[in-house]
Simulated assay, not measured.
Amino acid sequence: MKTIWAIPLLIGVFVLIPNVHAETLVQNLEGGMDIEITHPDEIVLGREGIISILVKNNGWEEKQDISFQFLVSEIPGLGVDPKNVRIDKLAEGGSYGENVNLKITNDASPGIHFLNIKYSQVLVSNNETPQKPFFHDIAIPIIIKEDPNVKIHTKTPESIFANAEFPIDVEVISEDIDITNVKIKIIPPKDIEFRGETLHSFSKIQKNTPIGITSRIITPTEEVNTEYKIPFEIIVQYTDDVGEQKEDSQTVSIVLRPRTFMELTTDGGIWIGDFFIAPYVSLGTIIGIPAGTILSLLVRRRTSPKKRSRKKKV
């Protein structure tokens, strides 16, 4: 039994849940009683979670005998501690919060389940006369997952062409657990090279903290006559929170196509036919990659004698 008066500082203590993937259920009940129940929307087999309960008496009358009863028998494999939360009395403007621990056993059934809660309270009319108990049913949806989620997001150009470089970005995020001994591999198809590493290692990736890597695809110099798809495989190997070795993978396909007459490159350069204008050169300086000729110098050499001869005649 607990008697809680107006203690606003408790609000920030009990509503925080370490699981980022959480939902808050708000109930506005009789007599100005507001209830916030923050719960994980997903729990993995063999793992634990937390439900945070916050009760606020925003009415002008006192409430007593407030209770939350968790009906855990309806979900085999779910453990709740404590199974009952009781508050003796809550005065006008008072609040109370408590954390309830959840645990899912390895033999629980994956899928969507509803954790039912029986809520009850007694309103004290005019702060003098207790009324009949008020009852309310609350259902919390919880998804039990068989394995933790480690997601791979890969960003590439829609298409690429020969004799150029293109970026490939990979982001890995573990949604449910911290993972360790992480290795991220990029396996390119034949004849495709990379500028940068194709194997990246991390000692630890924290839950819901994305890790990104960037490499550059170097395409073959030989032109292609038709377009076709080439696969890139992304493999993530790691150790989960219970010491098991896991692997996730993703395959992305990029279209390798013939180069058109004018192509913009990702670094700001431009191909015009067989000539490439580098993004870092000044105006009037055009570099032709195949011939290795600086065109602007040739133009200047051809035009310079004419300019001098005109000046002499004048």
Score class of each variant (00 low, 15 high):
residue 214 T to R: 15
residue 190 K to R: 15
residue 177 I to F: 08
residue 162 A to Q: 10
residue 268 G to N: 06
residue 246 K to L: 04
residue 167 P to S: 09
residue 187 I to P: 07
residue 169 D to Q: 15
residue 164 A to S: 14
residue 247 E to K: 08
residue 200 H to V: 03
residue 162 A to F: 11
residue 155 K to P: 00
residue 195 R to H: 06
residue 205 I to Q: 04
residue 199 L to T: 09
residue 207 K to F: 08
residue 191 D to M: 12
residue 186 I to C: 09
residue 175 E to H: 10
residue 181 N to R: 07
residue 267 D to T: 12
residue 190 K to L: 14
residue 251 T to A: 04
residue 172 V to W: 05
residue 212 G to M: 05
residue 251 T to I: 15
residue 162 A to H: 14
residue 192 I to W: 09
residue 162 A to S: 14
residue 253 S to D: 12
residue 177 I to W: 06
residue 191 D to N: 14
residue 213 I to A: 10
residue 173 I to K: 11
residue 203 S to W: 08
residue 226 T to I: 13
residue 208 N to L: 14
residue 274 D to L: 09
residue 216 R to T: 02
residue 238 Y to F: 13
residue 255 V to G: 11
residue 200 H to K: 02
residue 262 M to F: 11
residue 270 I to N: 06
residue 157 P to I: 04
residue 232 F to E: 02
residue 154 T to V: 12
residue 164 A to D: 13
residue 160 I to P: 04
residue 212 G to T: 08
residue 242 V to K: 02
residue 169 D to G: 14
residue 246 K to D: 06
residue 225 N to C: 07
residue 269 G to V: 03
residue 257 R to S: 13
residue 158 E to I: 04
residue 250 Q to E: 13
residue 239 T to E: 07
residue 211 I to N: 02
residue 215 S to M: 04
residue 152 I to H: 03
residue 223 E to D: 09
residue 166 F to L: 14
residue 225 N to I: 08
residue 215 S to R: 08
residue 270 I to T: 12
residue 158 E to C: 00
residue 236 V to N: 03
residue 244 E to R: 08
residue 256 L to P: 02
residue 229 K to E: 14
residue 237 Q to D: 04
residue 233 E to Q: 15
residue 165 E to V: 13
residue 272 I to Y: 01
residue 190 K to C: 11
residue 193 E to Y: 07
residue 256 L to K: 06
residue 184 I to H: 06
residue 248 D to S: 05
residue 271 W to V: 03
residue 192 I to S: 05
residue 189 P to I: 10
residue 248 D to G: 06
residue 227 E to V: 00
residue 258 P to V: 04
residue 222 E to K: 11
residue 245 Q to C: 07
residue 239 T to Y: 05
residue 155 K to G: 01
residue 272 I to T: 03
residue 159 S to P: 01
residue 222 E to M: 09
residue 201 S to H: 06
residue 253 S to V: 03
residue 235 I to Y: 03
residue 204 K to P: 02
residue 161 F to C: 03
residue 220 P to C: 07
residue 194 F to Q: 10
residue 233 E to R: 15
residue 249 S to L: 05
residue 172 V to C: 10
residue 245 Q to K: 15
residue 183 K to M: 05
residue 225 N to Q: 13
residue 208 N to S: 15
residue 263 E to D: 14
residue 268 G to M: 06
residue 173 I to H: 09
residue 270 I to A: 12
residue 199 L to V: 08
residue 158 E to F: 00
residue 154 T to Q: 04
residue 157 P to F: 05
residue 253 S to M: 09
residue 216 R to S: 05
